[in-house]
Simulated assay, not measured.
Amino acid sequence: MTQAAQSQNQAPQNTLREIARNYGIHLVLVFLIVVTTILSPAFMTGNNISNMLLQAAPLGIVVIGQVLVILVRGLDLSVASVMATAAVVATSFNGQDSDALPVFLVAMAIGLLTGLVNGLLITKRNVSPFLATLATMTLLQGLRFAYTQGAPSGNVPPIYRVLGSQSFYGIPYNMMILVVLVVVFSALLNKSTYGRRVYLTGGNPVMARLVGINSDRITIASYVISGGLAALAGLIYSGFVGIVDNWVGRGFELDSIVAAVMGGVALSGGRGTILGGLMGAAILIVVFNAVLMIGFPIQFQIIIKGLVIIVAAAFYVRKAA
């Protein structure tokens, strides 16, 4: 066979490979939506779509911060604990709209401070991201339980209930907040000096130092942003669930990491996008909802989630290769 003929035979294969590399995560999401719709037509009803968007927004907000820290070769296990602490703060005042600003300021202060501590431990004390964020997660959990005596009480200010659980012409308010954050932080990564330094710090730390980038400062900033976004997600999520306990946001730390990695954000740092991470989050939300809509036992949620991760990760590995 001539070289020209071999090239012609390989052309379709190369095209398929390119499609899998560039759109694999999208194909997984479309496949899940189609299969679930066939098995349960109610999946694509307006009410269910609105419900999925309500659930997706808090996770999406956390994913934005998680993407930033993974891009600088880190990870943040403290985000769920920050969310729960912010939710407890939301019920620690009088439950009136006049308390909305104090609640926001206190919750954000806790989130930003947690991110700062994480960043300082990692950059100045050379603590691994896993241990540093695990430590702050545990510390916040202990402080939360000590403060609430294990049983938080109180009401979330009505404005947070509106933002967390209500919609404007079918579009949830919390999804609007997510869209604004996605636009802001995508522009920050793609158009600003900070974004270029994030990618260089994660992709080639040695080169970053040689060109004069303060990698420690970039890493700390990424963790501070992650902590602040987790606190915001906690306030919004408290309005969605309506009641607050010490485990609000439980599991978001792992779900946000899984979503980011499924969306093509490299754990080795320096490669990935916020939109990719959000695609991963969308897959998780569809899986969670599909299990309930189809009528599977809740245990199947974990099994199917694991299978989806395997399939999506396979596309990611091929793309990385």
Results as ranks from 00 to 15, higher is better:
A4R: 15
A11E: 12
T15P: 00
A20G: 06
N22S: 08
N22T: 00
I25R: 07
L27H: 02
F31L: 10
L32D: 05
T37P: 07
F43W: 11
F43S: 00
T45G: 15
T45N: 09
N48P: 03
S50I: 00
G60P: 07
V63P: 03
G65E: 13
Q66I: 01
Q66E: 13
V67P: 02
V67G: 05
V67S: 07
I70K: 00
L71G: 09
L75I: 04
L77M: 09
L77G: 01
S78I: 03
V79K: 07
T85M: 13
A87C: 04
V88H: 06
G95I: 04
S98D: 12
M108H: 12
G111L: 02
T114W: 08
G115T: 02
G115L: 13
V117M: 06
T123Y: 14
R125T: 13
P129G: 13
P129D: 15
T133V: 00
M137G: 09
Y147G: 04
S153P: 08
P157A: 08
P158S: 14
R161P: 05
R161G: 06
Q166N: 12
L178D: 02
L178P: 04
V179E: 03
L188V: 10
N190Y: 03
S192K: 08
V198D: 12
T201D: 10
N204R: 11
A208L: 05
R209G: 15
V211W: 10
I213V: 15
R217G: 06
T219W: 02
A221K: 07
A221N: 11
S222F: 07
S226E: 13
A231S: 13
L232C: 01
L232P: 09
A233Q: 08
Y237M: 13
V244F: 13
D245Y: 11
E253W: 07
I257W: 02
I257H: 04
V261W: 02
V261F: 10
G264I: 03
V265M: 09
G270I: 01
G272T: 12
I274L: 14
G277K: 07
L278F: 07
I283G: 03
I285Q: 09
V286P: 00
V291K: 13
G295S: 12
I298H: 14
I298T: 14
Q299S: 13
I302F: 15
I302R: 10
I304A: 14
V308N: 13
I310D: 09
V311D: 10
A314D: 04
Y316I: 05
K319M: 06
